[in-house]
């Protein structure tokens, strides 16, 4: 396996290509449109954050990319291939860590390998590497209920990265954490992204988080969600947390996004 992103320079093909996608849900009474003609291209190795009002269909968008949900119209391609069912070449992290209670942190990470039938020795080595990288050393043998929320989410992140996916999809991964842990996790995730070169799609409610981590921030509107604006974050590649927060580009981007979200939710 090659270290994805860093060396792949097939600029012509996007890693994720969402084109004209709409999603309609039918309930007993009515048909609701969650997403309306959304298009988005994500370049290899790029970090894209998706923000928008609650319940606007951000998570739906990630599930489309993962192939866990089929669009009503439009198409989604991942690594140049149409998405037609659950995709194995991704890593997924949910808001809830979704760990198996009876497995230790390490064995939860290795679940990925077992399900895929990866070589156990190679998987174990990779797991140790990730445990080291995410600061889980010393907690490998703890059961999920013995870990803090932040630690649990680190385990979920390691599990998602075990098979070196080219694309990492994260659905509000730090939404359940306290503010301080969340900042720490942001720094960790930034470092992991820099080190692995994985393409990341992150859904978040936090404007600061979206800007700190991303190359671009996609702002969606209220339901039915359309892309309101895509903001290029003009921040340097490697970002120190507090230094980044203090930069004028950071302040400008967050203020702009806050304005956009304020406008769509009607509080101006």
């Amino acid at each position: 396996m090659k270290t994805a992103g860093m060396t792949t320079t097939s600029a012509s093909t996007s890693t994720v290509a969402i084109s004209g996608v709409s999603v309609r849900f039918r309930s007993k009474r009515a048909e609701t449109t969650a997403i309306e003609r959304v298009s988005l291209d994500v370049a290899p190795g790029e970090f894209v954050s998706i923000v928008g009002p609650s319940g606007c269909g951000k998570s739906t968008l990630l599930k489309l990319v993962a192939g866990l949900l089929a669009p009503s119209s439009g198409s989604v391609a991942l690594l140049g291939e149409q998405v037609r069912g659950p995709r194995r070449d991704i890593g997924f992290v949910f808001q809830r860590a979704a760990l198996l209670e009876w497995r230790s942190a390490r064995r939860n990470i290795l679940l990925q390998a077992e399900m895929r039938g990866m070589n156990p020795a190679a998987a174990a080595e990779r797991a140790d590497e990730l445990i080291e990288m995410t600061g889980l050393s010393g907690f490998e043998n703890a059961l999920p209920h013995e870990l803090s929320g932040g630690m649990q989410q680190r385990v979920a992140l390691c599990r998602a990265l075990l098979h070196r996916p080219r694309v990492l999809l994260m659905d509000e991964p730090f939404g359940a954490l306290d503010a301080l842990t969340r900042e720490q996790m942001n720094v960790e995730l930034h470092r992991v992204w820099r080190e692995t070169g994985t393409t990341v799609l992150l859904v978040t409610h936090s404007i600061a988080e979206s800007v700190y981590l991303a190359n671009r921030v996609v702002v969606l509107t209220r339901r039915p969600a359309v892309v309101q604006e895509v903001i290029e974050v003009g921040l340097p590649g490697t970002r120190d947390y507090s230094a980044t927060m203090a930069r004028p580009e950071f302040a400008a981007a967050t203020a702009h996004i806050r304005d956009l979200l304020g406008a769509v939710t009607g509080h101006d």
Binding site: K63, A66, L68, G91, F94, R96, L100, L111, R116
Partner: peptide, 14 residues
Amino acid sequence: VDTEMLELAATMGG
């Protein structure tokens, strides 16, 4: 079992 866990399992392709 959580739906999320089952969705994860689907992306793991087991």
